[in-house]
């Protein structure tokens, strides 16, 4: 199977550049939609580290996404600090929360972990809605300003899209490098056989904590971007429905593939926006989509290329695997 491969990191940069060019002729609405799509796609990639690599399905990931947004909003609106510093406070704050909660969360696995994370998400949601005038309660905090990057004003749709892409490329590039690193690969070992990894001398608990915090930090980066883009954070920026949407993006995209969750996270968001404008049956469409995926495509979007290759192989029974590989390289 010696195929000519471009490195995953280069692919991230190439796709980012492609997306940047693709937006050039689009109007502000479509550019805005793409911005949101990239944000949700990126957050799903972060969650994939936790779900696909470490095998820990979480229903509380939205909390880290939203906490960073709240950090940015509180920093700029309540404490009057510079938006960059406020975004930093949000992302670092969200990461620290993850770091503090991780040792507790990684003690449990499977369904218990899912439930613990759901509970954690609800606690954060409760704090946001019960925060009174500090967090704006159910109304959230409108009026989050967008920063400017030196002379580069980010208030326009196009400018903010390019900035989002830049951040997304940097974050996803880091994730891809992390996934390919020794730590990332040993996470797969933990997922597949924790006992053996422990017996081999790996610090399994530490690995799981690392995965947890990395996923949270990536989520926080995109959460801050989302808050700046919308100019608003509210309890909906960190509730369980967001967490569920992210988790489903990972599942539909194909856990562990990184690119699949990106495509699914971005695609689901665009589909949702489209359907919500044209039909009241969006939840039905979404539900059917999930059922179809689970039944017909258990490996998610990421398994499509493999299925496609298999089809081609069965369509050409004369070709031996060896010659096929050779012809493809």
């Amino acid at each position: 199977m010696a195929r000519a491969r471009i490195s995953p990191g280069a692919a991230v940069v190439a796709i980012g550049a492609l997306l940047a060019i693709a937006s050039w002729p689009l109007d502000a609405y479509w550019t805005g939609l793409l911005t949101q799509a990239v944000i949700f796609g990126g957050a799903a990639v972060g969650l994939d580290i936790l779900v696909g690599f470490a095998g820990m399905a979480s229903l509380g990931h939205g909390a880290f996404f939203g906490l960073a947004g709240y950090g940015l909003a509180l920093g700029t609106l309540r404490w009057g600090v510079n938006p960059w510093l406020a975004a930093g406070i949000g992302i670092v704050g969200s990461t620290l929360v993850a770091l503090a909660f991780a040792p507790l969360a990684v003690r449990v696995r499977g369904l218990a972990f899912l439930t613990v994370m759901l509970a954690f998400g609800q606690v954060v949601w409760g704090l946001a809605t019960r925060g009174g005038s500090a967090t704006g309660g159910e109304n959230g905090l409108p009026g989050v300003p967008r920063p400017s990057l030196g002379p580069w004003d980010l208030s326009g749709a196009e400018a903010f899209y390019l900035f989002t892409l830049l951040m997304a490329v940097a974050a996803i590039y880091a994730v891809v490098r992390f996934a390919g690193s020794a730590v990332g690969q040993s996470l797969i070992g933990v997922r597949d056989n924790e006992t053996r990894m422990a017996a081999l001398g790996y610090d399994v608990r530490r690995l799981r904590i690392i995965a947890f915090v990395v996923a949270a930090t990536v989520g926080a980066v995109f959460g801050a971007l989302s808050a700046a883009f919308n100019g608003f954070v509210g309890p909906g920026s960190l509730d369980w429905r967001l967490s569920a949407q992210l988790l489903l993006s990972v599942v539909v995209g194909g856990a562990g593939s990184l690119w699949g969750p990106f495509v699914a996270g971005a695609g689901l968001h665009m589909l949702e926006t489209y359907f919500a404008g044209t039909t009241q049956r969006w939840p039905l469409v979404l539900g059917l989509l999930y059922i179809v995926t689970v039944v017909l495509l258990p490996g998610g979007i990421a398994s499509l290329p493999r299925l496609w290759r298999q089809r081609r192989r069965s369509a050409r029974p004369a070709a031996t695997p060896r010659s096929r590989s050779a012809s493809e390289s």
Binding site: P142, F232, A276
Partner: peptide, 29 residues
């Protein structure tokens, strides 16, 4: 998102509606 669509794509001259309070502040912004 829908407000963006209405303004950006449908080119509406005016927005109206909404029922629950929580959507009003971001929409006003």
């Amino acid at each position: 998102e829908q407000a963006r669509r209405l303004v950006g794509q449908e080119h509406v001259d005016l927005l109206m509606g909404t029922v629950n309070s929580a959507v009003a502040p971001p929409l006003a912004e």
